[in-house]
């Protein structure tokens, strides 16, 4: 039974990725920026799984597990950095953080 063309899945994941891109570029709250990055990683996962289904190859699913592992580590470290920033500068707006500016 032929159901969903792969292009529709790819266009959907592109839409999700672009929402993530716009979120990263426009929001100033560091927590929302991290959420947008999660959206982008999810879009990548969807592509992996769609092609895994299309090609009947489980490598895509295994790689999406590795993406989830990396996302979990990234969000833990990112939120720890946000807590540390808030403790030091009372702000988590990403354009006010200029600690490394010479």
């Amino acid at each position: 039974m032929i159901v969903v063309p792969i292009q529709h899945v790819l266009v959907f994941s592109l839409a999700l990725f672009l929402v993530g891109v716009v979120g990263v570029l426009t929001r100033r709250n560091g927590i929302i920026v991290l959420m947008s990055i999660e959206l982008m990683l999810n879009a990548a996962n969807l592509n992996f799984i769609a092609f895994s289904r299309l090609l009947s190859d489980l490598a895509g699913q295994v790689f999406s597990i590795f993406v989830i592992v990396t996302a979990a580590g990234e969000v833990a470290v990112g939120l720890a950095i946000i807590i540390s920033l808030f403790r030091n500068s009372e702000s988590i707006n990403v354009d006010e953080i200029t600690l490394l500016k010479g």
């Binding site: 580590g73 990234e74 833990a76 720890a80 807590i83 540390s84």
Partner: peptide, 9 residues
């Protein structure tokens, strides 16, 4: 990542 998060926070 776990050790890093604990140290940073």
């Amino acid at each position: 990542a776990m050790v890093g998060a604990v140290v940073l926070a």
